Simulated scan of single mutants.
Amino acid sequence: MKLLVITSGPPTWSTRWFLLRRHMHAWFRRESREPGYTGEGQWHPHREYSGWVIRPAIGWRRFRWITPPLHYTRTIPADDMYALGTWMLEKLEK
């Protein structure tokens, strides 16, 4: 990931420190995943706006402030994980 940094002079120590932190964070996220992780076909259910949603693990649809979820329901209570798993499998198999 590249960042565009526009400055009016030579880079300051705060700019260098910021870029180093961003670079190390991106590197650590890549290296900390288990071997063979691609993120493809992996879906995550979680709570949003008093309901359960299904979003992919990678891609632009994982961001809730940009796109609507793939599936959404308010009929399942927050503590019923068995019903959540059943609902998720039913929606993803279609």
Rank of each mutant, 00 (worst) to 15 (best):
R16L: 15
L20W: 11
R16T: 08
F18N: 02
R33P: 01
S14D: 15
W17G: 01
R30C: 02
T38W: 05
G41Q: 06
W27T: 03
L19R: 12
R29C: 09
F28Q: 01
W17E: 14
T12P: 06
R29A: 15
W27E: 01
H23R: 15
H25N: 11
G41Y: 06
E34C: 07
T12I: 07
T38D: 09
S32N: 12
W13M: 15
T38C: 09
W13I: 13
T12Y: 05
S32P: 02
E31F: 00
W27N: 02
F28D: 00
S32R: 13
R29P: 00
E31P: 00
R21Y: 05
H23N: 07
R33T: 14
H23F: 12
H23G: 11
T38H: 08
L19N: 08
W17S: 08
P35R: 09
R22N: 14
E31Y: 00
R29S: 11
R29I: 03
G41M: 09
F18A: 04
R30V: 02
G36Q: 09
T15V: 15
T12D: 13
R29G: 02
P11F: 03
G39L: 02
W13E: 15
W13C: 07
R21S: 04
H23M: 10
R30M: 04
T12R: 13
A26K: 09
R16Q: 14
R33M: 12
T12F: 05
R21V: 09
G36R: 07
P11R: 10
P11S: 13
R22E: 15
P35W: 02
R29D: 00
R21K: 15
E40G: 06
S32Y: 00
T15G: 05
W17Y: 10
H25M: 07
H25R: 14
F18I: 03
F28S: 01
H25F: 08
M24W: 07
P10V: 10
P10F: 02
T38G: 12
R33L: 12
